[in-house]
Every structure is written in C-alpha cells, then in structure tokens.
C-alpha cells in the first residue's frame, strides 16, 4: 500500500505566550508582535499519525498550510518530523479569512496537490479553536469526515477503524478511504524529531502558491470579503470573585459565616 496522506498545519502564536497576546480593538485581530509562532499543537498529532502510517505501510506525506509567508518556518519544522513535501497557500487576498473561507482555500489546495487517500487535520487550532475546519474541508471536498478522533488504524485492504470521542464515550467506525479526519491530542504522543529530520528538512520541496496559481478559485469565497463570520463587540471577562467583608467580634463573624454556609449545605 502506498498511501498519499495530506496533513493540514496551521501556524499559531505560541500558546505558552498567550498571556502576552492582545486584540486590535478596530480590526479585532490578534496583535502578534513579539510572540513566536509555532505549529498548532493538535497538528503535531496529525503529523505524528501520518508518520506512523508511513512507517507502517509506506506513504507520501504532504503538508498543506494557508497563512503568511512566515509560516514557511512552521512547514520546515513540520517536515523535520518526516513528511515529504509541503505547500503553503499565501496571498494577501486570503487574509482575514474565517473558518469557512479557510476551509474553502484548504480544500482547493488539497485538490490541487492531491488526490489524497487520507487528509488529517488537528481537531482545532489553539488560537481560533472553532473546530470547524476539518468537517468543512470534508464537506467542501465531498468526502466523508469525522472529528475528535482519538484512535486510528488501517488494515492491508485500506479499511480503517476510527475511534471517535462522543460526549465522554467512544464510538468506533469502520470507514473507507478517502477520508478526512480531525484528530485530538489524545490520539498519540508526538515524538521528538531527530537531528537527521531537522537537517534534512531544508532539502525537501516547499511550494508556495498565491491566488494566481489557482485557475478555478471562486474569489467570492476567499479572504475577509468571503467570510460570513463578522466579529462583534468583545469584552474582557472578569474572573475575580465577589467578596464580602464580615465585621464584628469573632463570635459574631462565626455566627454570620454559619448563616451563610448552612443554606448552601442544605441545612437550616
């Protein structure tokens, strides 16, 4: 079996630095200055699954990303884990895309780089966290799709067993390829890429596509203007707790406290 696998990866601000992130009040986009970008953590699990399948059956793995030119850095990093080539879809016209416009462009890129037997995405991104993209990509491409996947295996005949998390339980599906899945972090443990992978990554093909590289792109479906989601007002949630100061002698305070606690405990 020589599979063709695509893994969609997104460059996101480093979650360890989320506390330093802020929002631009006008454009309602993230201010990323001074924040490193990394591969979206769930996508690392998607890459790991692809590499495990490659080790098991042999496969050609392509990484696909939509993002700014700088996302080439994350793609190189992704290639260090073992994939064979990478495609970055990057153009100002794609900027400001919501999850639907993103899924449309990813689907187009997957069609152009494909066809693929298996398309793996991280279940959700650390920054947007909508978890829309895996299903939307599947629907746009007309392929069966499943999300929140925590187990995946394949037999010699190309039959899959897919373990999906369902409200605290699991459902196991048998599905045929081609298939689109969104994987959760629990699916596997991501390896540390070895030095061979790191030093070999620079020699692997990385292709950048702009709008011009797509012949049949529906421009009404891309970028900010192609995004039905419009940001509303936002406010900062307060996680502080309401505090009441109890005054009086220690006995008075104790009795007051008891009056507060007893009803909570269901005692009068």
């Amino acid at each position: 079996m020589n599979l063709k696998i695509a893994v969609c990866v997104k460059s996101v601000p480093n979650p360890d630095q989320f506390s330093s992130l802020s929002l631009d009040p006008v454009s309602k986009t993230l201010i990323r200055e001074g924040i490193d970008s990394v591969i979206n953590p769930a996508d690392l699990h998607a890459i790991e699954l692809a590499v495990q399948l490659k080790e098991q059956y042999g496969a050609h793995i392509s990484l696909i990303s939509m993002g700014p030119q700088q996302a080439q850095k994350e793609l190189r990093m992704g290639l260090a884990y073992g994939p064979d080539d990478a495609f970055l879809v990057s153009d100002r016209e794609f900027g400001g895309a919501d999850s639907l416009a993103t899924s449309y462009v990813l689907a187009k890129a997957l069609e152009k780089a494909g066809p693929f037997d298996l398309i793996i995405l991280g279940n959700e991104s650390a920054d947007g966290a909508t978890a829309h993209v895996p299903s939307q990509v599947g629907i746009i491409m007309g392929l069966p799709n499943m999300t929140d996947i925590v187990g995946f295996s394949l037999d010699e005949n190309g039959k899959t067993r897919v373990k999906k998390r369902l409200q605290g339980r699991y459902a196991i599906y048998e599905a045929e390829l081609p298939l689109v899945i969104g994987v959760a972090k629990d699916i596997n443990k991501v390896r540390t890429a070895g030095m061979r992978g790191v030093l070999g990554a620079k020699n692997k093909p990385l292709t950048v596509w702009s709008v011009e590289n797509f012949e049949d792109l529906d421009k009404t479906r891309i970028g900010l203007s192609g995004s039905p989601t419009q940001g509303g007002e936002y406010h900062t949630a307060s996680f502080g707790r309401e505090a009441t100061e109890l005054k009086g002698s220690p006995e008075e305070i104790a009795s007051e406290l008891s009056n507060i606690i007893r009803p909570i405990l269901g005692r009068e």
Binding site: R76, A80, T192, A193, G194, V198, L199, A201
Partner: peptide, 10 residues
C-alpha cells in the same frame, strides 16, 4: 539561523 533554531528546539 532557522535550521539551528529548529535543532535547538528539538
């Protein structure tokens, strides 16, 4: 450089 940063991270 980018490659050495990757190596350092790993």
């Amino acid at each position: 450089n980018e490659e050495r940063e990757m190596l350092r991270k790993m």
